[in-house]
Design a binder for these strands. Structure first.
Lengths: 150, 150
DNA sequence: TCCAAACTTAAAGTTAACTTTAATAGTTAT
DNA sequence: ATAACTATTAAAGTTAACTTTAAGTTTGGA
């Protein structure tokens, strides 16, 4: 199965311009063209693009992703570089996820704070028992979520 | 206790230029000045700046954060807007964290793939049992992490 | 008193990752 | 065959969040 740039764009939820930009940056070195110069994407290209999206989501820049693509073009002699890259990215994500967790707890506290302020009609209420409240919120967060979505 | 812009920068791990930029964008409307025009930050300013950093980490733009700061200046009549903002941000983070989890699992799979490729000396090995491997990796991910950090 | 360090402003520069534009060419449906 | 759609390129434009520069002013220590 082959796809036009517009079809690929729809499948991946990006614009054709973005795909051309990725191509220009060297992220898609194996995309075929018709004799008239129009790009035709195959399943491998789609898979590579999904990987590109994953690497982007993991925090890599276009430049870093191009480095990875260049390594894959060189074949088995660059396996270690690629392994190391993924290990670095794994560590990077673990750090980011831990930070996210902290930020999320701070936002949860603010949700409780403004919920209470809304009930009291003022932000000037006694919130000296805050740490306890935060712990309760953490424990009930899944429950709260269910309450809200039902 | 009062702090100079350089001290605040060090405490928060940002540059004085960034602090001046935040001030210019209206994120620090209550920072005092000496008669000669030099900024003096107090504990409230530090707390606001920590909140700004938290909001930024949660995905809000400087513009959005300014909106929040403007609301706080208006006092109790904007409690609902602020509560709604934090609830939106809570939902936003939950979505982002779920996406992150997916991306992380994909990276974990790639770590396993390239680890195996490294042992085999080639990426052209049989990985048809992949889904099973991914599940094992998920279950052992904490263990693996401990192994690596010890 | 004087030097260096730290502060001030306004304005211009930087960077990444697109996005838009303009001008043109190939493709599809009637 | 012609309109409407989709594709092509190169190049310029956009945006956010700073960062740097230039030209000065203020402050603290020897």
């Amino acid at each position: 199965m082959e796809y036009s740039i517009g079809e690929v764009a729809k499948i991946l939820g990006i614009t054709p311009s973005t795909l051309r930009y990725y191509d220009k940056e060297g992220l898609l070195p194996l995309v075929n063209r018709t004799p008239s110069g129009i790009r035709t994407f195959n399943q491998d290209d789609l898979n590579l693009l999904r990987l590109v999206q994953c690497l982007k989501a993991s925090g890599l820049s276009i430049k870093d992703i191009k480095q990875f693509v260049d390594w894959t073009l060189l074949g088995d002699e660059t396996i270690e570089e690629r392994r190391d890259m993924f290990h670095r990215q794994k560590a990077h994500m673990e750090k980011k996820m831990a930070e996210m967790e902290k930020t999320y707890n701070a936002i949860l506290y603010k949700c409780w704070f403004y919920e209470t302020a809304c009930n009291e009609g003022t932000t000037d209420f006694d919130h000296s028992l805050t740490p306890q409240k935060v712990i309760e919120l953490k424990q009930n967060s899944r429950l709260h979520h269910e309450e809200q979505t039902n």
